[in-house]
Computed example of a mutant assay.
Amino acid sequence: MDQSAQSVLGDATESAVVLLVPDAEPLVDPHRQQFDVSASWGVPAHLSLIYPFVTPRQVDDAVLTGLADLLAAESPFDCTFTKTAWFGDEMLYLVPEPDEPFRRLTRIVAEAFPDHPPYRGAHGDPVPHLSIGQRRQGDLAGLEQAQEVLCAAMPLRTRIDTAALYAGTREAGSWQQVCTFPLGRPTR
């Protein structure tokens, strides 16, 4: 593990394995900055595979190599975001289509790290989603307005080809990328 990864992990209290969606940033970032706590932490547009993941002090070369090998065995894939959806009236998100590649990657990582199920197992088979915001970070009217803007700008087509390990605390600006994992490309 390189020095910069060790530095990020040294101050962190949590970690997450995410699929990065940089093509979504121009569309979602203004809304995420206002309504999504993970954006305030410093995590870019993403779909979570495993959150929370191993504690930062448990991240070592074996964990990083294990993740790299798992993810290199999976091919990059295309997806389209054509609509928004809600978890109740509390959280607005973008729906990826198809969702099976996201579900498969979540299962693969969860099976390899069974002590760290997605969302601590609270949601069974989690719904793949790109979070836009939580009502507790703003208000319902603001999220509904964001939804209108997002729906008018879709569809958003993108290629998912990179996963990343992020770590930080629950403080603003504290999350940083520990390392990336290209899909479909061996690291050795």
Rank of each mutant, 00 (worst) to 15 (best):
A73K: 10
C151F: 01
G173W: 01
R107M: 04
Q145A: 14
Q3V: 14
A163I: 04
M1N: 11
Q33N: 12
L156A: 08
V8N: 05
T187Q: 13
V18M: 05
F53A: 11
D23G: 14
G173C: 00
H129A: 07
L67R: 04
A146T: 12
S48H: 03
V17H: 10
T84W: 11
V28Y: 00
V43F: 01
A152N: 12
D23N: 05
C79F: 05
A164H: 01
E148N: 07
A24K: 06
Y166A: 03
F77V: 07
W41C: 00
V127D: 03
D60E: 10
S38H: 06
P182E: 02
E74G: 11
S38K: 01
A167M: 07
H46M: 07
A172F: 03
D78N: 12
T169Q: 00
E111D: 15
L64F: 11
H31T: 09
F113Y: 15
D2K: 14
F81D: 08
E144Y: 02
L71C: 11
M154Q: 09
D161L: 02
F181E: 03
D11Q: 15
L140V: 13
L19A: 02
Q58H: 12
P126L: 08
G142K: 12
E148F: 08
F81Q: 02
A72N: 08
S7I: 00
E171V: 13
P101F: 04
F87P: 07
Q137G: 02
T13A: 13
V127S: 09
M154H: 04
F102L: 06
R103V: 15
S38C: 07
D115N: 15
F113N: 12
A163H: 03
E74P: 05
F77K: 05
L130D: 06
Q3Y: 10
W175P: 02
V149W: 09
A62N: 14
M91N: 13
P186W: 00
V63N: 03
V21N: 00
S38D: 12
P30W: 03
A122H: 14
A85D: 15
T180P: 06
V59P: 12
F53G: 08
D139R: 08
E97Y: 09
D99R: 14
G184Q: 00
E111A: 14
Y93S: 04
L150P: 06
